[in-house]
Design a protein around this nucleic acid. Structure first.
Lengths: 198, 198
DNA sequence: AAAATAAGCAAACTTATGTTTGATTTTTAA
DNA sequence: TTAAAAATCAAACATAAGTTTGCTTATTTT
């Protein structure tokens, strides 16, 4: 064997870390020749082999037929953050997008996701604080107990949803606040996750 | 002009959505020919032009010289989730990795990040619940008031950090729990974010 | 120390893929 | 209705980038 296990892992890990960093910075994988020059490898064949070993170790994915086809196993979904909701405007118009966020696909699954910044303290009981971002799956129905985003007075609000006696109850998770009761509300989606940074 | 504005945006947006979906599923961008067949475009030149228009609209990035170089503007960082910490073992060994998560680079910045699953309810005051994932920046020092991950009795624990009278105080954010006081602790990192899914 | 095994290398090979060109069709404006 | 402008197309082009080959060097094992 050319190297003992420790050495071997070291070289491969250096390449793996480089690929990780490269993808993080560029959004796509480096080519074999870039791996060579940046990791001190002199032959493209060597880099090629190392990449294949990383693939066998399950650290990355790579197509044998396609080019430019190295991917990390941690996939992501690009999700728009909906900014301030202008009265009367369609919520999901591109103009309302306040940028895109890459969310971990293995944690926030589903189609048609969007994000919203939490305002106020109406949901502190379940640990939703001001400026947290909630991840929402777009849907126009909800079940009792769901945490939903509803359109109330031309602004998006996060509450727990109940339907009782033909009325819609939007329940804040805050002991100091009262329920809101409506005949009907527009549901924008169901909250499936939350992001915060300190 | 070939199309009115509404039509034009529609075609381009279809391509954009396709690229978004493709990247989400594969981890790398489709080639021009794949865009053609999947979006009903008959000429690679057309797809090429549309992609360039999307680039000009700022929806994606693309190198003019490199190949395989389409990227969404929402970049991500691949972060390992540290699973159960075995006594005596080095925490950051690859064997302890419980998979990787792609986090939004525009939200969780920094090098050397890792994630940890929250156990127990010692931090509920600041909205950290059981099974939440915390995002941690690796570092071995901390400032008063930081929320940190420390190694206590061979297991990683999240607490608020204080240093007072030469002692280290690990403060649970839970009114029913007492402070832990140590002469010295091993700091693994500082908590910079949190993920939850419902 | 020799044999066996693995890793690394240079160089050539192959082709997927981005790009250009020039004609054709569609849309817009006059 | 016609002319101008823009978009789309088919086809060919150029080459970046993955892969293979055969040899050399390093490491491990016996």
């Amino acid at each position: 064997m050319a190297r003992n296990n420790i050495e071997k892992v070291k070289t491969e890990d250096a390449v793996f870390k480089y690929i990780q960093k490269y993808i993080s910075e560029n959004g796509y994988a480096p080519c074999v020749r870039e791996v060579c020059t940046q990791c001190g490898i002199k032959s493209t064949a060597t880099a090629f082999n190392i990449i294949n070993r990383l693939k066998e170790r399950g650290l990355l994915e790579k197509s044998d037929v396609k080019r430019r086809a190295i991917a990390l196993r941690s996939k992501s979904v690009s999700v728009p953050l909906i900014g301030t909701v202008a009265a009367g405007q369609p919520i999901f118009a591109t103009e309302n997008y306040d940028g895109f966020y890459s969310l971990p696909e293995n944690y926030f699954a589903g189609e048609d996701l969007f994000m919203l910044t939490v305002k106020g303290s109406s949901m502190i009981n379940i640990g939703m604080f001001e400026n947290d971002k909630v991840v929402v799956r777009k849907q126009d129905v909800a079940e009792n107990g769901d945490i939903i985003v509803a359109l109330v007075d031309d602004s998006a609000t996060v509450k727990r949803f109940f339907r009782r006696d033909g009325k819609i109850i939007l329940h804040p998770e805050n002991d100091e606040m009262e329920d809101f009761i409506f005949d009907d509300v527009t549901i924008l989606g169901k909250v499936i996750g939350l992001l915060r940074n300190f």
